[in-house]
Computed example of a mutant assay.
Amino acid sequence: MLGTNVIAQIGILVHDIDTVSQAYADFFGVEKPQWNWTDTVDVAQTEFEGVSSEARSKLAFFDMGSLQLELIEPDQHPSTWRNHLNEHGEGPHHIAFIINGMKDKVTLMESKNMRLVQKGEYTGGRYAYMDTFKDLKIMLELLENDK
């Protein structure tokens, strides 16, 4: 359906990105990555449940060979990150795939009852979180990088 079966990223929600990123760094014997804020809504054009949202998160990334581990500490604004953390606590939030043709993939997935939950832009591309819990038991993130 996506044109790929390679998982590019696993996203994990946390309450304290500094503490958890240090724990992962210690566990893997690597340097603790610096975290960065996601862009503001005017740049990211963030939409949650079809409505503009000022939601932001602190993000830290661990590159683990072919897979990236993303730690996410959301702010208090409405978002998939905040809702999931409030409802389920810390832990896995999504698996991500790098795709081409974001609009077409979102349309295709929505036709299969996998609805778009949140979308936005980042430097160099865009993302979309799709609700695939009914069938796949996890949120699925689509990442499309500019060419």
Rank of each mutant, 00 (worst) to 15 (best):
M1S: 13
L2H: 12
L2D: 07
L2G: 12
N5S: 15
V6S: 12
A8W: 04
Q9G: 02
I10H: 14
G11I: 03
H15C: 13
H15V: 11
D16P: 06
I17Q: 02
D18V: 12
D18G: 13
V20K: 06
S21M: 03
Y24S: 04
D26Q: 13
F27Y: 15
F27A: 15
F28G: 11
F28T: 12
F28S: 09
V30H: 01
V30T: 07
E31M: 15
Q34G: 08
W37T: 02
T38F: 08
T38A: 06
D39L: 13
D39C: 10
V41S: 04
D42S: 12
A44Y: 09
T46N: 06
F48N: 01
E49D: 11
E49N: 13
G50C: 12
V51Y: 09
R56N: 06
S57N: 08
A60R: 04
A60T: 08
F61N: 05
F61E: 01
M64D: 07
M64E: 12
G65F: 08
G65T: 03
S66I: 15
L67N: 00
L69W: 00
L71G: 00
L71Y: 01
L71W: 01
E73P: 05
P74S: 01
P74G: 01
D75C: 03
Q76F: 10
P78L: 01
S79A: 12
T80A: 15
W81K: 02
L85P: 00
H88Y: 14
E90G: 08
E90Y: 09
H94F: 14
A96T: 02
F97M: 07
I98W: 09
N100I: 07
K103V: 10
K103M: 13
K103I: 11
K105C: 07
T107G: 07
M109T: 10
E110L: 04
N113V: 06
M114N: 06
T123N: 13
T123P: 11
T123H: 11
G124H: 05
G124L: 07
M130R: 00
D131F: 08
F133S: 06
D135C: 14
K137Q: 13
I138N: 02
M139D: 03
L143R: 08
E144W: 09
N145T: 11
N145E: 10
D146M: 09
K147A: 12
